[in-house]
Nucleic acid binder design. Structure first.
Length: 375
RNA sequence: GGGCAGGUGGUCGAGUGGUUAAUGGCACCAGACUGUAAAUCUGGCCGCGAGAGCGUACGAUGGUUCGAAUCCAUCUCUGCCCA
């Protein structure tokens, strides 16, 4: 019996967007969904209570590579698993470390067997193979676990991308083979293939043959132009099974989230809202604003008049700017709450618009208000 | 009244005759950030100018010198010590 199942509720008649529910051991997830990232078993600056009450997050991410290094997966297991360790009782998804193959590019060596990392913390050698990734992810105990893959940089040559994608496929098979906790954790395969349609097609075909309970698109949103992003998104999503969750990895700007939903994606995650919060920027319904800028010195209005979050209900731009500029932790916290809530609320709206077969119109309206030009 | 030390761009502080409109830090002003090596990184920061450039600048004034923030004189201000 699969730990993860997908239930389709409605398809937007005017787009491919789908409204559904993902059933997990820690509860249901209404989709499409935005998932906050909590790499080191914490969504930076947020308590689990805030994530539930203020952000209204349904599921969060954590990271295999980072938790493997510190505090170590065995310690987390000893603590009773990630849920108990971090006091979060809703669903969790762990990324496999495949993104670190990309982001720590200078510090790792890829072999067929796996990836040898030089720890970004102390330079020591840390080896992760598909089997080790599974061992770590099973010890962490997330509801959804990702197969160990390689996220290719942009741009990459056809030859490299093909080689990498084929290796990722072999790794996926090894992950599936090594994965023992099938009834407790759903293992998702990750479609790679860079920006080459035939490679995406091949990757999708081979992974689907392995019958994972869910599928992700990896390796896009890695610095390519939006046009390229949309092209691959629209090409790859229809290749994915329609009776299983579809997860677009690493997507986080409001326009990308809407485009993803339009294409038929169910899940997205991104560090962007929390990162730019720490750097003094807020997403609002009228575009992003750098609150730390002098323009807001005497702006005694909320970040976003249309937002219902704790921050917007209680604090002004001028105050948040003051907190950010004086490097007070509260500034980071207030902006993080707001940015995360902005995206979860956006997705709540997206779900309603899908039910009303109106997501395309909403996209146009949103773009206009946000200040996005076109696609 | 006497002695000593010192006054540098928003600020702290380098620089002790020539690539010096003047090192750095901080503050300030902007930009970037998309499965987190990120509470980080990048750029700007005397005035005018798109730019080459021009004009003002190292307490004040005068001097030495081809050339001074840097040397000399006087004045002035600050700190410490003595009376």
């Amino acid at each position: 019996m699969n730990a993860i199942t997908y239930e389709l509720l409605h398809i937007d008649k005017n787009s491919g967007a789908r409204r559904g529910v993902i059933h997990t051991p820690h509860g249901d997830i209404q989709t499409p969904i935005f998932m906050p990232v909590g790499t080191q078993a914490t969504v930076k600056a947020m308590t689990p209570e805030e994530l539930k009450e203020e952000v209204k997050a349904q599921i969060i991410l954590a990271n295999t590579y980072h938790l493997f290094l510190r505090p170590g997966h065995n310690l987390v297991k000893e603590a009773g698993g990630l849920h108990k360790f971090m006091n979060w009782d809703r669903p969790i998804l762990t990324d496999s470390g495949g993104f670190q193959v990309f982001s720590l590019g200078a510090l790792r060596k890829i072999k067929e067997e796996g990836v040898e990392f030089r720890s970004h913390l102390d330079g020591s050698k840390k080896f992760i193979s598909p089997e080790i990734a599974m061992e770590i992810e099973e010890a962490l105990g997330a509801d959804i676990i990702m197969a160990f893959d390689e996220c290719c940089p942009y741009p990459s040559t056809y030859e490299y991308t093909k080689k990498s994608m084929e290796r990722t496929t072999r790794w996926a098979a090894r992950c599936k083979e090594a994965h023992k906790t099938v009834d407790k954790q759903g293992l998702f395969g990750i479609i790679q293939g860079g920006f080459f349609e035939d490679l995406r097609e091949q990757s999708a075909k081979d992974l689907i043959a392995m019958d994972f309970p869910g599928y992700a698109i990896g390796g896009i949103s890695v610095g390519e132009p939006k046009e390229e992003f949309l092209k691959m998104l629209k090409f790859t999503t229809p290749l994915m099974p329609d009776n299983k969750p579809r997860y677009l990895m690493g997507v986080g700007t409001p326009d990308y989230l809407i485009e993803a939903a339009l294409a038929g994606i169910d899940m997205c995650d991104c560090v962007l809202p929390t990162r730019i919060a720490r750097h003094g920027t807020a997403m609002t319904s009228h575009g992003k604003i750098v609150v730390r800028n002098a323009t807001y010195e005497r702006d005694f209005s909320p970040l976003d008049e249309e937002c219902d979050c704790y921050t917007c209900k209680n604090y002004t731009k001028a105050y948040i700017r003051h907190l950010i500029n004086t490097k007070e932790i509260l500034g980071v916290r207030l902006l993080s709450i707001h940015n995360l809530r902005f995206l979860t609320k956006l997705m709540e709206r997206v779900r309603i618009e899908i039910e009303n077969d109106n997501l395309l119109n909403f996209r146009d309206e949103f773009y206009k208000n946000y200040g996005y030009t076109k696609e």
